[in-house]
């Protein structure tokens, strides 16, 4: 198994948010976590990314035990890419610098090559010098995706990737996103509250309710 989450629990100010979460994923699989607001789905994502520390449990990604009762690896040490709900593109940096931001350990040449590769991937080759606020919502989302993918993370996490897009764009982006994830063979977790989103993008849907996984469902294509 490529990703394994075991007995994960988390409480916020003594209120349990996640209770005994267990699930696993194979490499290249796209899983949607579906739940209403307050179900704990965003918290699960933050735990996976290392932005929060779990009270109990383990997360194993690509044979790295990232988290257990003894070992905690902070967000910046994890090979995890994250696309934030409102993208969190750095407003003071150009698109290219945003994408290159995670590539600190790369040499200058490979870095530029990687940025170009990413721009190509998300079909924004001419937009490298633009600033985030000069882009449309869909374009911003693609930049956020490119930025998360650039450092070649073990896993990609997407938080409500479609919530800021209008209905027409949504259809298109869902398709594009799935294309990109499949193309890069990226193991991904998408958190959403929208069943249509989940069905159109994921291989499998995990239903989260009240901090527990209530069922799982494979998506037939």
């Amino acid at each position: 198994m490529y990703v394994k989450v075991e007995a994960l629990s988390f409480a916020y100010h003594q209120t349990p948010v996640l209770k005994d979460i267990n699930f696993s994923m194979s490499e290249g699989e796209v899983v949607a976590i579906l739940g209403s607001s307050g179900s704990g789905k965003s918290t699960l994502l933050r735990l996976l990314s290392g932005l929060e520390m779990p009270d109990q449990g383990c997360i194993i990604i690509n044979e790295h035990t990232l988290c257990s009762n003894r070992v905690f690896v902070a967000a910046e040490k994890r090979e995890v890419g994250m696309v934030f709900q409102d993208y969190a593109l750095f407003p003071h940096m150009s698109v290219a610098r945003n994408i290159g931001f995670g590539l600190t350990k790369w040499s200058k040449e490979t870095r530029q090559a990687r940025i170009d590769e990413m721009l190509m991937l998300v079909d924004l080759l001419d937009f490298g010098k633009r600033y985030p606020h000069e882009l449309s919502g869909g374009q911003q989302q693609r930049v956020a995706l490119a930025r998360a993918l650039a450092p070649k993370p073990d896993i990609l996490l997407l938080d409500e990737p479609f919530s800021n897009l209008d209905a027409e764009l949504r259809e298109k982006i869902r398709f594009e996103l799935r294309e990109i994830m499949k193309h890069t063979h990226m193991t991904s977790i998408v958190v959403t509250h929208d069943y249509d989103d989940a069905v159109s993008i994921a291989d499998r849907i995990v239903y989260l309710e009240g901090g527990r996984i209530v069922r799982e469902k494979k998506v037939e294509r």
């Binding site: 932005l51 910046e76 995890v80 890419g81 934030f84 750095f90 931001f101 600190t104 350990k105 450092p151």
Partner: peptide, 21 residues
Amino acid sequence: EKFTQASYTLGHGKLKTLLKI
């Protein structure tokens, strides 16, 4: 906090995030 967190997930530590973001 989203920019700071984005920076963390992109592999930057506290100090570098403070300076660059």
